[in-house]
Design a binder for these strands. Sequence first.
DNA 1: CATGAATGAGCGTTCATTCAT
DNA 2: GATGAATGAACGCTCATTCAT
Lengths: 196, 196, 196, 196
Amino acid sequence: MTSRKKEKYHQILEAAITVFAENGYHKSQVSKIAKEAGVADGTIYLYFKNKEDILISLFREKLGELVEKFQTSLEHITNAEDAIRTICRIHYTELEADVDLAYVTQIELRQSNMEMRVAIGQVVKPYIQLLESVINQGIESGLFRADLDTKLTRLLLFGAMDEVVTTWLISGQKYSLSEQVDKTVEFFLKGLQAHS
Amino acid sequence: MTSRKKEKYHQILEAAITVFAENGYHKSQVSKIAKEAGVADGTIYLYFKNKEDILISLFREKLGELVEKFQTSLEHITNAEDAIRTICRIHYTELEADVDLAYVTQIELRQSNMEMRVAIGQVVKPYIQLLESVINQGIESGLFRADLDTKLTRLLLFGAMDEVVTTWLISGQKYSLSEQVDKTVEFFLKGLQAHS
Amino acid sequence: MTSRKKEKYHQILEAAITVFAENGYHKSQVSKIAKEAGVADGTIYLYFKNKEDILISLFREKLGELVEKFQTSLEHITNAEDAIRTICRIHYTELEADVDLAYVTQIELRQSNMEMRVAIGQVVKPYIQLLESVINQGIESGLFRADLDTKLTRLLLFGAMDEVVTTWLISGQKYSLSEQVDKTVEFFLKGLQAHS
Amino acid sequence: MTSRKKEKYHQILEAAITVFAENGYHKSQVSKIAKEAGVADGTIYLYFKNKEDILISLFREKLGELVEKFQTSLEHITNAEDAIRTICRIHYTELEADVDLAYVTQIELRQSNMEMRVAIGQVVKPYIQLLESVINQGIESGLFRADLDTKLTRLLLFGAMDEVVTTWLISGQKYSLSEQVDKTVEFFLKGLQAHS
DNA sequence: CATGAATGAGCGTTCATTCAT
DNA sequence: GATGAATGAACGCTCATTCAT
């Protein structure tokens, strides 16, 4: 029962990601998502509070997976520099590999009001904390500058990567996103490193 | 006549910025903007093609002013490092000084479809070119690393600043944005500088 | 299920005929039709593409019934003169018996653009063909003149009857329409008959 | 002054006929007529009560001219049969010669509410009376049947011709309208004549 | 649990008309 | 008389959500 419930839940989410990516959030009718998922319109509301909830859930699920990948990959990495490189690589390659997801996170998810932004903030938190802990670890290990403002720095890193992904997406993905990892990381590390 | 026309045009834009900031683009009725501007609903359409056009015009006007400020401030600055610092300072202080404008550019403007994004892209272009020219000048003058990818770098800089502003905004402007200039610039310059 | 669907479909059509007859097509709001039909505004659009579609459907349904009546009545009539008389009688009596329908077909339906005219043309076709076949049969049987132009003649007949109905309607139905049958038919037959 | 007034009045009417014929009454904005006429929007209202008044005036003016042509042509015709032939010829040839006028009278003018219909009725009156007087004269001279119902007969004649013109118009004027005169008149006369 | 027909609030836009200049 | 900027009422249609089955 529970597994079947979950099944339909994910079924709807997968449909939503497809429909959102194709038409954008505001132009995606709930009925279209239902059709894509192969369920009735009303069924959607057995699994989600409302349309907005679909978008947030989508983000939560997908970002959850992403954060897991980050955590798994970082598990045996103790060097902060390597960690930054790994984070950037996953950030770029995962979104490059799933353009639909990229659309939803970079474009559609931004089409939200302040209340949703707050909700999204909650979802992004683990990723942000990951960045923070890496930065902190870098400072503690002496690899990164001691005068770094952790909270500001993680915004700079995240914002920079975010913009690169969005621009790549809007440009029509005409070039390789993952090839930008090295130069991005080099810029980051120089900005971060202690004995520059 | 022309001045009175312009007067009403700006009257509507100012009303729009207020209403958009308060309710968000999608929840701002044209009639509400008209009321705020003290004109009839139909009058809006004498000055703007449609609701979307208001948003884009708003952005164009305001960003135009901003770019002018950048250009004026950079006029006598030949040192690329100083230029970067000036850009960041203006970016932060101007948006900090006009929270409504900040809301519109950081939140509402993102609530747009791909077509609008393209239009916005045109508007942002001068600012982007400004960043690029400063980076290029920095490289040529030997202050910045020669192996910098100009196009990638300006994304990193813009994205980083953009995220800082948005986060500050969403947090409820509980801290000073302009105080973040120094640490932001320090991070940037270390990432940019040649003799690191 | 299907019958209930049809039920609501006809419910809306009957409401539309009432509202159109009372206010005219252009001054009949969809909401007024919905109210009259006892359904929500949106329900209209589950059964009709748009407002125009209501008008055309109305015409198609009602004229369909009318054509059926013509065909049933003519089934056992082989004499072309009798057929003409029967057609005129039905044309006048049916519209006299349903003033609302008459309003819609004679007045409101004419308030349509060229595209709608084409659609209407399709609906009227069976009636036109009926007239043509009667004329042709009359010619073949030797009752009607051999030099009659079938296509022109059916226009003359239809146009003449149409004008009589419209004028009766505009005049406020102050006299009996069905009493005009005999004199109309007499005029027609003299114009049609061979051994004049 | 008066002549200049009249000048602008006709200027607007000519513009209206062009615009109505091109776009249809409901899709013809007053501003478009003003532009076509080379006057300001407001000027229209110095010469016409409202948009509807333009249509009726147009009809009144043009039909007035037409009736004059009828009357001039019938001046020296004492034979009722010749008169019918002349009327039909003018009816067909005049509208064939001025397709724009035909559009307005046959299509656009019908897009009117009951109030307008009444107004139009007043305008058509002289033409109707002309038809009536010809029929009456025919009866009195013994050429036409004595048992003709004058009021009904003029409807039959007018309606028949009207339908022929409308059908020719909607068909795209692919054939000659004036060539239909002879067969139309032949049908009429057989229906009208006494010693058939 | 699932359905999908029904709901009805909500809104961008048009355009005939007015009136200060 | 002439202008044309300004007005604001009016409405077709969409679509997220509900609920009887």
